Amino acid sequence: MALAEPNGNRRHRQHARPPVGASPGTLIADPSARQSALNLTLISPDACEFVDDASLDDVEAACNNWPLIWLDCVGLANIGLIEEIGRIFHLHTLALEDVVNTGQRSKADFFDEHAFFVLSMIDDARTSRYEQISFFFGDKFVVTFQEREGDPFEPVRQRIRTSNPSRLRHRKADYLAYALIDAVVDSYFPIVDATGDKVDAIEDELLAAPRKQHISQLHGLRRATSLLKRTIMPLRDALTTLIRSDAPFITAETKVYFNDTLDHAIRLAETVESQRETMIGLIEMQLSLSQSRTNEIIGVLTIVSAIFIPLTFLAGIWGMNFDPASSPWNMPELLWPYGYPAALGFMAFVAISLVLFFRWRKWL
């Protein structure tokens, strides 16, 4: 993805950028980009075909023979191939530059014959791996560019395969673009829900028995949630731009569906923000509980010290080297047969008296 991977380690990817002063629309491939492969989906009201590892000749032929095509380019290493796709569909070079320069903020741009929409998606739910995906759609085509294999589009492909009446077969490219973007947005819900379950579990453990590892767990989740927030927040603005556009290739009926996707994005943003606030509150609560526990321990040690200070004083007095034979004032208790038990009894009396006094003052 453009920003980082929330797997507990901070990682920053360096992206290939055109040289300073280069002509606008210059395409520079990232050295780590995957090799490009084309997957072609051909759609009509009565039939559909799926062509894996398609060639540019297949794409050009499909443009003339099918009412709606979806071209999915997986991998961004082959700049020449991407430029040829741009030539076939008349894609703007500035938008193609944003395709290969991954790390773009979610946005929607409009050109004469097509729209450009870019966002980040989760292509591996187990590791929460992100990547940038770019959409171009006009009147009869949808072109998507992915960084690598793996996407949430299989349900959309299944709907295209369905033989019974399907909106994806009977409507134009704007509805197909909606279905794909909606699938990307909905793919965030399992990640957000799983994060919420982890936060709830940590909260229960924290209230029952706080442990030091809770802090590191909460910090890791908060970092991942902050990344989600940075990803989802711009998505709302991009969807709003799509809905408010007056492009002729986006129908009013499809805007209603895009508005539903916007509602999902808003709900995700609100949930993520709520989780983030909850985690901050739990971190503060953990610190407060730790401080309270420390104060409790210090208080107990202070009480114990307060009890033993006078006893230590008495033991020090009786432990001095006095000679009772030289004077009656030189501690006559040293020759008293009951001096030892009397001294212990007096010390016990002092200790018990101090405990009762502390309880009376509600210090214990």
Rank of each mutant, 00 (worst) to 15 (best):
residue 2 A to K: 04
residue 9 N to T: 02
residue 12 H to M: 05
residue 14 Q to W: 05
residue 17 R to N: 08
residue 23 S to R: 11
residue 24 P to H: 11
residue 24 P to L: 10
residue 25 G to R: 01
residue 25 G to Q: 11
residue 26 T to D: 13
residue 33 A to V: 04
residue 57 D to G: 08
residue 68 L to A: 10
residue 77 A to V: 03
residue 84 E to V: 00
residue 86 G to K: 00
residue 88 I to D: 06
residue 89 F to A: 12
residue 92 H to I: 03
residue 93 T to D: 00
residue 99 V to F: 00
residue 101 N to Q: 13
residue 112 D to P: 01
residue 113 E to V: 14
residue 120 S to T: 02
residue 136 F to C: 06
residue 136 F to S: 00
residue 152 P to I: 01
residue 157 R to E: 00
residue 175 Y to S: 09
residue 178 Y to M: 02
residue 203 E to L: 15
residue 203 E to G: 12
residue 207 L to Q: 14
residue 210 P to S: 03
residue 212 K to E: 12
residue 212 K to T: 12
residue 219 H to A: 14
residue 220 G to I: 02
residue 220 G to S: 06
residue 224 A to T: 00
residue 224 A to G: 08
residue 234 P to A: 03
residue 236 R to L: 04
residue 238 A to R: 07
residue 238 A to Y: 12
residue 238 A to Q: 15
residue 243 I to K: 07
residue 243 I to P: 11
residue 248 P to D: 00
residue 268 L to V: 10
residue 272 V to G: 07
residue 273 E to A: 14
residue 278 T to Q: 14
residue 279 M to L: 02
residue 285 M to P: 15
residue 286 Q to D: 07
residue 288 S to I: 04
residue 288 S to K: 08
residue 291 Q to V: 08
residue 292 S to Q: 15
residue 294 T to W: 15
residue 295 N to G: 10
residue 295 N to W: 04
residue 296 E to W: 12
residue 304 V to N: 03
residue 305 S to M: 11
residue 308 F to K: 05
residue 308 F to Q: 07
residue 313 F to I: 00
residue 326 S to I: 10
residue 327 S to R: 05
residue 336 W to L: 11
residue 337 P to H: 11
residue 338 Y to C: 09
residue 341 P to L: 05
residue 352 I to V: 14
residue 353 S to A: 07
residue 357 F to T: 00
residue 358 F to D: 07
residue 361 R to E: 10
